[in-house]
Nucleic acid binder design. Structure first.
Lengths: 332, 332
DNA sequence: CTGAAAGCGCTTACAG
DNA sequence: CTGAAAGCGCTTACAG
């Protein structure tokens, strides 16, 4: 593996000259520059970006911390953040917290140790806030995505969960539903609290009696929600509509319904949240709330980049408005 | 941001001592070690891994190059590779080629520039092989995943596409189908060629006339395959079964079928390939070939790690055998 | 058991 | 227009 010294020797110039040729800086004669570039090509020299970063006290790496890359919502976010970073010649470290606060902490420390210039974090549930405060002191730009932490001094990009839930609840009420369940999300999740609040607020506005027993928590995977949905069917046959916390949760619920040969859309209405691509593949296709993961990823990248370049405005909260996507799972 | 020098000054020791304390190396008196560690804690010093890497001429970063992180098959692979890397304290760079050979080239060069210790690559279609040969000369470990390139001297982890296609084709024939189409994949894809060969070989073995017009290419997304499926229905109404190149392709085909109110499983049989989680969410659930993306990711990580640690055995080709998953899209 | 010094591969301020 | 030298934050072989 050649270094800048080898290239310099090969051309009979100094390493300073090679460096300047490589970075297109300083005033080199075109002839010298050409000679160097040719040597680079001939030797197959490859620039050591990490050495340059060390010397310049810079970084062109950013970290992305997710809970579950396997969730299509997050993989779309990853893609668009990645595209944004590529445009600005930054590399992306990817890590998965799997919703473990301890693991998340380790990962963030690892990001710092690896000298990221900034990071976007989808916080794990139960993350201790003290840690984030010390993180802030490190002066490294952090933007929170998807899940907000209500820590005033962090940038955040996400959606309006309260509003999204309102949209979908009102839609069901307009269709005549009165016994509406809310299924999914974990106890203690801020996101869930907001969606639940949206659902409740619309119920109240419409003078519908709030039955707290109609809201159910479950893990965000198909298996867990399938089991829960079966429980709902067994114990609350009066329910005519269920608002699922996420599309993934709705998929699990659908399994339970299909197994029992219950006609979704006719006998029961079902809704999701996120509008991942798969939501249009189910049968019936899922009525859901669209939250553009792509847009969140892009915006988060944009904000992060600005911070990395020294922007010190007050923290921004960018809210991508959710929209109602009507398909066939509430009738058609 | 403190450095090792600050910590050393704070404790009144040399930087060598701090370094040794940090790495648990050398013979330091427990008292000194404790003093250093305490200072680290107090100052909030964080280790600069990149500086250490430069000095040691090591790396604890690996690169993962994918075509489409948005495809659930690849996100599962990413997750399991990531887990494997985390176990060994390596960070993962993620990049998306979006199947552009030129972009892929840029990314690989960027990986090298950022001093990855190795990389796993799912090659983009149409990658020029010369480039891979020069890559080989750089001595940096590379393992190919999912798509093989038939370059003898690279490690590869993937599945047996030929065998998988044979499994599913035989299944359809056993169910009585004779007019079987093959839908999807791009011209020039090695993977497609192998699956197509499996399909053809079983047809021939069963004395079924091979109709070359029954095989169709299309991009691996829902929209493209929906359009193609509509074409098939319009022009070849005699077809009773279609083998889709991937689950994603099958999802698009399902859309076309649902739109036309054709009963999947009864009027037409449909199969996928990959067994991504969503394959069990469709209605009817998709009969498909299971290829464990998790297993591929894990194994690829394992092989890469061995290479990084200096293993110089001959290149390995690890084939994860595919299995047939019978659900309801071919009748039940 | 601990310190002084060289060096990993770059860049840049300073001379010339 | 180009070179010699110092320094980014580490580690390790060598002294003591």
């Amino acid at each position: 593996m050649y270094t800048i010294v080898d290239v310099a020797k090969y051309c009979g110039v100094s390493t300073a000259t090679v460096s300047m040729a490589l970075n297109n800086k300083g005033r080199l004669s075109p002839a010298t520059r050409a000679k160097v570039l040719e040597a680079v090509d001939k030797l197959g020299y490859v620039y050591n970006q990490t050495a340059a970063n060390l010397r310049n006290n810079e970084s062109n790496q950013v970290g992305l911390l997710l809970n579950d890359i396997t969730n299509p919502f997050y993989s779309e976010l990853t893609l668009s953040l990645n595209q944004e970073m590529e445009l600005h010649n930054k590399m992306l470290f990817l890590a998965n917290s799997e919703d473990s606060p301890e693991r998340q902490r380790r990962i963030i420390e690892s990001f710092i140790s690896h000298k990221v210039g900034g990071m976007v974090i989808c916080p794990a549930l139960g993350l201790d806030l003290d840690f984030l405060v010390t993180l802030k002191r490190r002066q490294i730009p952090v933007v929170l995505a998807v899940r907000n932490l209500e820590i005033a001094d962090y940038d955040f990009v996400g959606t309006d969960n309260f509003q999204g839930a309102r949209l979908i609840t009102q839609h069901l009420i307009n269709l005549g539903h009165r016994k509406i369940a809310f299924l999914g999300g974990m106890q203690g999740s801020k996101t869930r609290a907001n969606r639940l609040a949206g659902y409740i607020s619309v119920l109240l506005e419409n003078d519908i009696n709030l039955e707290t027993k109609y809201s159910f928590t479950c893990e965000s995977n198909r298996k867990a929600s399938e089991i829960m949905m079966n429980g709902i069917l067994d114990h609350y046959p009066e329910i005519t509509a269920v608002i699922c916390y996420q599309d993934i949760v709705a998929f699990g619920a659908m399994r339970a319904l299909h197994t029992r040969n219950i006609n979704i859309g006719k006998e029961i209405a079902l809704t999701g949240f996120d509008d991942i691509p798969e939501a249009a593949d189910t049968h019936p296709e899922l009525t859901t709330i669209s939250v553009s993961a792509k847009e969140i990823g892009r915006k988060a990248g944009e904000v992060l980049l600005k911070r990395i370049h020294g922007n010190t405005e007050n923290p921004q909260h960018i809210i991508i408005p959710p929209t109602l996507i009507i398909r066939h799972s509430c009738g058609s």
